[in-house]
Design a binder for these strands. Structure first.
Length: 299
DNA sequence: AATCGCGTCAACCGCTTCGCA
DNA sequence: GTGCGAAGCGGTTGACGCGAT
């Protein structure tokens, strides 16, 4: 005889106030309960989930735990170079629209991307003594970090000891797709497509070039190590040496107290990374789509 | 061995948006 | 048009792990 036959109906709390709400880290048991419930009833109606599953958690908490951790699609582990590239770009377009950015990175959650941004990107800005939203930092991202990321992706693909698999092939294709954008305008796409990054400026590149596309990038060395005063004056030349197409007037000057001041004297800076038509050309929908497809392939 | 500092990331909080009656 | 509850979103916090001292 079960409780229902005896006329006993278990009390179901109707509000969070009626529940002895639990907070803090989830236990394995709670995870199992939530998984089991969602597997049977599906996602959504999170307040009901909280009430009916027996979990002493708020609906919000259940939703968050499911979306950020328990969902089968959730992809854990280091943010790959391609993913970083995509995050930088999409953030330049949409700013802190984390969930929107996450939609374009298969298996990644908004929380993860937000954390990446705060722990890595903002740290870079801090180390350079820039505001993360400042034009200087945007320029640094645009002219240093992104080309460097692309270079690293390329290095990974080119390396004999790297990943000779489809990853390498698709990466090369992607880079080529950037390089081969045809437009009547001088484009940043061409610039970064043919830029020759001086390996001496990038210690870890001057050694092995076999780092995996999924290697976690050192958060400290990313931008700052190739952005020190000795190297700064070389950047415009590096770009120009690469293609001869680089026409934007980027000047690096010395500020007081040895602070580097980058000045990109473009006429217009629309997007986060400066934009104008140059970045728009690189990051057209086709290229973003292409990069996304690679990420879906990886996932 | 102890503790300190720092980085990471899961989880919470408060606000906004959405959907429905 | 309005009110209300649910869901979603972004900012922030705090626990934890790990390396340095």
């Amino acid at each position: 005889m079960d409780v229902y036959e005896r006329g006993f109906i278990p009390e179901i709390p109707h509000s969070e106030e009626e529940m002895d709400v639990r907070k803090g880290p989830w236990t394995e048991e709670e995870d199992s309960m939530l998984k089991a419930y969602v597997n049977i009833h599906g996602e959504g109606h999170w307040n009901s989930v909280a009430r009916l599953s027996g979990l002493k958690r708020t609906g919000k908490s259940c939703r968050l735990r499911w979306l950020n951790y328990l969902r089968p699609e959730v992809r854990r582990g280091n943010i790959s170079l391609r993913e970083q590239l995509l995050i930088l770009e999409l953030h330049s377009r949409w700013g802190n629209r984390w969930s929107k950015i996450a939609q374009h990175l298969p298996g990644r959650t908004d929380n993860e991307i937000k954390n990446y941004w705060r722990t890595r990107v903002q740290k870079q800005a801090k180390q350079l003594k820039y505001d993360v939203n400042s034009q200087q930092f945007r320029d640094a991202m645009r002219y240093v970090w992104i080309p460097r990321l692309i270079e690293r992706i390329r290095a990974s693909s080119d390396s004999p000891s790297g990943q000779p698999s489809t990853n390498a092939a698709t990466t090369t294709t992607y880079i080529d797709s950037i390089s081969n954008i045809t437009t009547s305008q001088i484009t940043y796409a061409k610039t970064i497509g043919s830029v020759q990054v001086d390996r001496s400026l990038m210690p870890e590149l001057s050694g092995t070039s076999s780092d995996s596309l999924d290697t976690q990038v050192s958060s400290v060395t990313d931008l700052t190590d190739c952005y020190n005063p000795q190297n700064v004056s070389n950047f415009p030349n590096n770009f120009q040496n690469g293609s001869g197409l680089y026409q934007e007037n980027l000047t690096a000057t010395w500020g007081r107290d040895d602070e580097v001041e980058f000045q990109a004297t473009e006429e217009q800076s629309n997007g986060w990374l400066g934009g104008g038509d140059s970045m728009d050309t690189v990051w057209n929908e086709e290229n973003i789509w292409f990069l996304q497809q690679q990420l879906y392939d990886e996932a």
